[in-house]
Write a protein that binds this DNA or RNA. Structure first.
Lengths: 105, 105
DNA sequence: CAAACACATAAGTCTGTGCTTATGTGTTTT
DNA sequence: AAAACACATAAGCACAGACTTATGTGTTTG
């Protein structure tokens, strides 16, 4: 299940850090992502595989490097999930609900 | 960490089911939540504890029953987290960004 | 007050998962 | 072509977490 992959992927703090790194930079390869992270190369590779399967990240091979960047599909799925419960937010935020509906098309 | 609690809480499919049940009904006690769920009483109790710690759920004791309902705080935190990456959504959805900013105040 | 009830907590088991080291695959460099 | 490099995969280990049964705590009912 798609939803499950996403939440499981984001349940790990290391993976969220990786994702945030990718979000603030345009695109990074796996080695660049490791900088300042005290994480082994295989661990990084495994985390990226999980993020990729959750559609939170896209990869693009360039020679011997693999460049990773944020895939909006994953984020959109979270938004859609949260949007189902938008009725529980303060009234004024109902405007958000509208915007999200337009987004779904 | 707050963020961690939420994502870990939602990483479990059973807990998401419980949360969705609470979202579609106004308020339910733990026993009512078990209906049609083939889950033991202690398991339900443990899941609810996790959801409560993540601020996804509120409890209110009434006699020997404990009524649970959705706590918007948890949902709001997810929205805030996703909002940080709203730049990755298609342009027109940038309107959402505005709405979320207003929400933060 | 005793029994039934609603729920929480304890303790143990089993599976999932995040890590490691070792090795494999493909690409670039010299 | 050999060496260095970037990354993936394999296999094993250790811990986290979801479940179970058993029991505890508090409340209501008969």
């Amino acid at each position: 299940m798609m939803e499950n992959d996403i939440f499981k992927a984001l349940a790990d703090p290391t993976r969220r850090t990786i994702f945030e790194k990718l979000a603030s930079n345009q695109s990074m390869n796996a080695s660049a992502l490791r900088n300042g992270m005290s994480i082994s190369q295989p661990a990084m590779s495994q985390h990226l595989a999980v993020l990729r399967q959750a559609k939170l990240v896209d990869e693009e091979r360039q020679g011997r490097f693999v460049h990773y960047r944020v895939n909006p599909d994953g984020l959109a799925l979270i938004v859609q999930w949260v949007a189902r419960y938008s009725t529980f937010w303060p009234d004024r935020i109902d405007a958000l609900r509208q915007t999200l509906k337009e987004m779904d098309q």
